[in-house]
Structure formats: C-alpha cells, structure tokens
C-alpha cells in the first residue's frame, strides 16, 4: 500500500471540518472560524488566479483535504490522464492531508456527464474501480479514500451489496473509505436497505473520514418517496443518529459538514461542525473509559 507523503502539519485531525466554498473564502480569512480543517473540491482549484490565492492563505493556517468530484473511477473506458494530472498539480501545491474520490462514474466516450452516476454492483465494475484506484494511488504516490455513493436507482445485473463492494475496493487496493453517513441514509431509504447493517459491513480500520450533509425529499409519480442528496439543508436527526452509530463502530474520525446548495452563512456550518465535534469528543471519552475499565 502506498504511504501518504504528508507532513505532520498537514494531517487531518479526528475532529470536525467544513466544506469550503467560494462564498466563504473571504469570511474564513476575516473571521478565522474555530474549525480544525477544511475540505475543498479539487476541480474548483485547477486554474490560476484568486481561488488558489485564497486556498493558499487558508492552507497556511489549517490542514486541507482535497475531495475530487469528477475523476470517474467507474468509467469502463479508463481514467482521463489529463484530469489526473490536474489533480496532481493541485495536490503538489496544497499538500493535502487527505485526498478522496467517489465510487461512481461520469465519463463515457470522452464526454463528461456532470454528475456522480451510479455503477451496477458487478464484478466487472469492481475490477474497473480497483484498477483505477491502483492507478490513482501509484500516480499520486499516496493512498486515497473512496466515498460511498447516494443512489436513486438499482440495477437488475447488480450482484454485490454496496457495502461489500466498498469493503472489497478497500481490501484489494489498500485505499481507505470515506463513509458518507447521509449517503448511506439516502440510499438505504431509497432502496429499502438496513443502514445499521451497511455501517457494520464497512471495515472500521479502513474508515478515514465521515461526511455529513442534508438532503431533499421528493414524491414520485408512483407514490414512492425519493431522497435526493443535494447538500442543501441541515443534517437531519436520523443522520445524526446514524453518525453516532458510526462513531461507536469506527472511533473518532475526521468528519466533514458539507453544503453545496442554498449555502448558508459560515456560522451555520461552524455550528454543525461544533455538534459533530461534541459527538467525537464523547466517543473519545467513552473509548478511554472503556479502556480504563
């Protein structure tokens, strides 16, 4: 397994961080909010100019995680070498504590379909993803995390439960898992899976980070309800509960508050991060207590 080549100062602590978006660049510099780390979408910093200057300035004070949203690990036609190179350039500049990508696909026939599209859970898809994770890790000379998806459809030809697919990618490539608790909740509600069983199916030692976000609820024409992962509202109570279960299983892990739509003032994100920090601290205390007893 490739080793991370990050300095101690860049390591992401087992505390809460926030997803940094352009709207908050100036506010973060002005107010120096009390969060332990920040995560950005790698694709937003591939050009020059002011976004990179802001990120450089923020990176001087805080560890940063790079979260890619478009590498398309699940594309049958292979990875876009130019995109991988762009990711590497950003990583060389920012020296991130963590780097992550998604179990999804977006590119077919050279066209980028701008979404995290669902993969059929097949042996062929698993082989494809593992091959690409290997390629990314050897190119970047570090291990990455892969995030479980939120999905709205499932496929006839899927043969592997999603949590087993995640565990298999980690086992075969040495990568870690970015456990998105909201995605687990959304997919389990959409497909009638058991969220607790999903969590229990992920090997605790592979969990490098947890994501928390809000989602939307939509009624379909057939009367069913669909939950949609839009990162446009606060984390709901059920996802906080699932997060507590995750902490019990995994121990204290870096946890991210993510908003991408209806982005609220910075304070709202910081308040959600504080709540996550509180739960992480409780978990750490319980673990210490259990050890002492």
């Amino acid at each position: 397994m490739p080793l991370a080549t990050t300095s101690t100062a860049s390591l992401i602590p087992a505390r809460a961080g926030i997803g940094l978006r352009f709207q908050h660049h100036q506010a973060v510099l002005d107010t120096n909010p009390d969060v332990a780390w920040m995560e950005v979408h790698t694709e937003n910093y591939m050009g020059g100019g002011s976004p990179l200057r802001y990120l450089d300035a923020i990176r001087r004070d805080l560890p940063v995680s790079l979260h890619g949203v478009a590498l398309s690990l699940g594309s049958a036609e292979g990875l876009d070498a130019a995109h991988l190179e762009r990711i590497k350039k950003v990583a060389e500049r920012i020296e991130p504590g963590l780097m992550s990508e998604h179990i999804a696909w977006s590119v077919v026939d050279g066209s980028y379909l701008a979404d995290l599209l669902p993969l059929p859970m097949t042996e062929e898809a698993l082989d494809t993803v593992c091959r690409h994770v290997d390629q990314v890790q050897s190119y970047l000379k570090r291990s990455i995390l892969v995030e479980n998806p939120s999905t709205y459809v499932t496929f006839r030809h899927s043969t592997i439960p999603e949590w087993e697919f995640m565990a298999a990618v980690a086992r075969r490539t040495g990568c870690g898992i970015l456990c998105d608790a909201n995605n687990i909740y959304v997919s389990c509600q959409n497909h009638g899976w058991d969220a607790s069983a999903y969590l229990a199916g992920l090997p605790p030692s592979t969990i490098g980070e947890v994501h928390l976000a809000g989602h939307a609820v939509r009624q379909l024409a057939d009367g069913k309800t669909l939950r949609i992962d839009d990162h446009g509202s606060q984390v709901i109570a059920e996802v906080w509960t699932l997060y507590q279960q995750a902490l019990t299983l995994f121990g204290p892990v870096p946890t991210l508050i993510e908003w991408d739509n209806n982005i609220p003032p910075l304070e709202t994100l910081v308040a959600e991060a504080r709540r996550a920090d509180h739960l992480i601290a409780l978990t750490a205390k319980e673990a210490a207590h259990a050890k002492a007893a």
Partner: peptide, 17 residues
C-alpha cells in the same frame, strides 16, 4: 437494466443534475 420496481422516472434526478 433497472431493478424490478424502479420507475424509470428516477433517472430524471440524474438528468436534472
């Protein structure tokens, strides 16, 4: 290729995104 009981209009979520 959609699993039984999955209405094709669910793909609209991806189309919209």
């Amino acid at each position: 290729s959609l699993a039984a009981g999955i209405a094709p209009d669910r793909l609209d979520v991806y189309r919209n995104t």
